[in-house]
């Protein structure tokens, strides 16, 4: 028994300390550290998985953005082509219309010219025929009948000639 109250014994305190230090080392090296290491490894594992998932998500997002850009570009191209086709169509239509109008004018002119020529030709023909008839009739009258008769015949012949025309 020492003189310290409550039977406090420094040697026993140090023995308790020795015991606890051993216990601390045991618990640290056999339990605390391995369990913490395992939990850290698992955390790393999940972080790696998370990182991979994030990378894939980013990649997917990039693909989506590219796809949307391409879609927008394609829509723009389609719009431009449509516009070009519409303009070409309008131009072709206008050209066709103009050609048709020109063709119509040309046909009309040609028809007019042909009609005038035909008319002239008929008139010329009629005049020639009348002249020939007049000559024939005159010749007949002069040769075969009297003057009056010839005159009557001339008149008749003229009338007939007029009717024939």
């Amino acid at each position: 028994m020492s003189g310290i109250p409550l039977n406090i014994d420094w040697q026993q305190i140090l023995l308790h300390l020795f015991n606890f230090v051993i216990l601390f080392a045991i618990l640290y090296f056999l339990l605390y550290k391995p369990v913490k290491n395992f939990m850290a490894k698992r955390e790393e594992y999940y972080k790696a998985i998370d990182k991979q998932a994030q990378a894939k998500l980013d990649e997917a997002e990039l693909i989506k953005v590219n796809y949307n850009n391409k879609l927008t570009e394609a829509e723009e191209e389609i719009r431009l082509r449509k516009e070009k086709v519409r303009l070409d169509l309008e131009k072709a239509t206008a050209k066709k219309l103009r050609d048709a109008e020109e063709e119509a004018v040309r046909i009309m002119d040609k028809a007019k010219r042909d009609a005038q020529l035909e008319c002239q030709k008929i008139i010329n023909g009629a005049q020639t025929e009348i002249s020939a008839m007049v000559a024939t009739a005159t010749e007949k009258l002069a040769l075969e009948a009297t003057a009056s008769e010839a005159f009557d015949q001339f008149l008749e012949a003229t009338e007939r000639g007029s009717e024939d025309e």
Partner: peptide
Amino acid sequence: KAVNPGLISGFVVTAMILILSLIIRFAVI
């Protein structure tokens, strides 16, 4: 040396924890 029973308890507890820790370390972990 004659010591308080509490110190013996401490040694026994440490020994038990040591055995338990060894089992856990090499069989469970």
